[in-house]
């Protein structure tokens, strides 16, 4: 799910990547909403709030919200700078590096929140900014490597697409279109995973508080390790096949 890039991706790759990353995004968003009263996996609302605060003349709040939006932008920028520059050399490393940065950010929030958080407004603002950066990284990565077909934190667009596809499926010719059906499945998987992630995080939070960020990091870590495992298995199978073929060739000659 991380190795393949753009058009070479299969439906299974996109569903796996979409589901797991949407699950973690749902976890982060719900947790930040419970703890900090701010969304961290999407910025649509922040644009509206930015406009509202500017119109009210609340320049401090407007500055904070602008900085949050910028952090989401920078997250997207950073992940794609890594992909663009290193994808040719090692696609697995290029796609894993942004996720490692995301894990570091989430672990930092979890650690600080659990051991040092004094519930001041400035701490809240910085931690929300860190999470928006992390979510920007994730969204930028998934959108980029899936040729923009998987956007795990962008549920406005997803719900729009589901609505459009549902309307299209009222016609038989669209229902029989395999590509549209696949897209519909990916979207449903993302929506369901996002919701499930949110519910799980909500439940974990009331038991473990900030340690929920360690659970989110574990989900993202699973994506990286699963891909590493698949990479090793594929390499092992290829080596086995080559040696077997070589053996057969040697015996025949």
């Amino acid at each position: 799910m991380l190795r393949k890039f753009s058009n070479s991706r299969t439906l299974k790759d996109n569903i796996q990547l979409g589901s797991l990353s949407a699950f973690s995004a749902g976890m982060v968003n719900v947790t930040s909403l419970i703890i900090f009263f701010a969304f961290t996996s999407n910025v649509t609302g922040h644009y509206a709030i930015l406009a509202e605060e500017i119109s009210k003349g609340n320049w401090y709040q407007a500055s904070v919200v602008f900085a949050w939006i910028f952090m989401f932008f920078i997250g997207n920028f950073v992940s794609n700078i890594i992909i663009i520059n290193y994808n040719q050399k090692n696609s697995y490393a290029a796609h894993s590096a942004p996720l490692i940065i995301e894990i570091i950010c989430l672990l930092a929030v979890g650690y600080y929140g659990h051991f040092h958080y004094r519930e001041t407004l400035s701490e809240t603002e910085i931690m929300v900014a860190t999470m928006l950066f992390a979510m920007g990284i994730q969204n930028g990565l998934t959108a980029s490597i899936s040729n923009f077909s998987v956007k795990t934190t962008h549920l406005t667009g997803l719900t729009t697409d589901v609505g459009i596809l549902t309307a299209m499926f009222t016609k038989k010719k669209y229902r029989q279109n395999k590509q549209l059906r696949s897209k519909f499945n990916v979207l449903l998987a993302i929506a369901a995973s996002y919701l499930a992630g949110g519910i799980v995080a909500g439940v974990i939070y009331y038991e473990a508080k900030f340690l929920v960020f360690f659970a989110v990091s574990a989900v993202i870590g699973f994506i990286i390790l699963y891909e590493y495992y698949k990479l090793k298995v594929t390499k092992y199978i290829r080596v086995k096949r080559t040696s077997k073929l070589r053996k057969v060739l040697l015996e025949t000659t």
Partner: peptide
């Protein structure tokens, strides 16, 4: 400017 504003302007706190 946003970062400077958050340091210079009076915060809600």
């Amino acid at each position: 400017i946003s970062i400077v504003n958050t340091m210079v302007l009076v915060s809600p706190t």
